[in-house]
Amino acid sequence: MAYKIITSQCTGCGACEFECPNAAIAFKRDTFVVNPKLCNECVGHFDLPQCNEVCPVPKTCVPDPAHPAGGDD
């Protein structure tokens, strides 16, 4: 399952973009978004999804049920 960012809660700090090992996160039109084609939930890189580990706002980087095709755990 790919991750997504709940835009309404995002502070725009960019920490997730900085940490993402797959460069799946980018700043597009005023907000950070995950490219579900690139996100694999950090599998093979780290034990835990980096965007969710670093994000200062709880429940803002979350699994995206619309894109269940990412890396599997």
């Binding site: 502070t11 725009g12 700090c13 960019g14 920490a15 900085f18 670093v54 200062p56 706002v57």
Partner: peptide, 14 residues
């Protein structure tokens, strides 16, 4: 430098 690597209880990141 907008991103931070710690959370402080006196800071609201929003």
């Amino acid at each position: 430098a907008p991103a931070c690597n710690i959370q402080c209880n006196y800071c609201n990141r929003k």
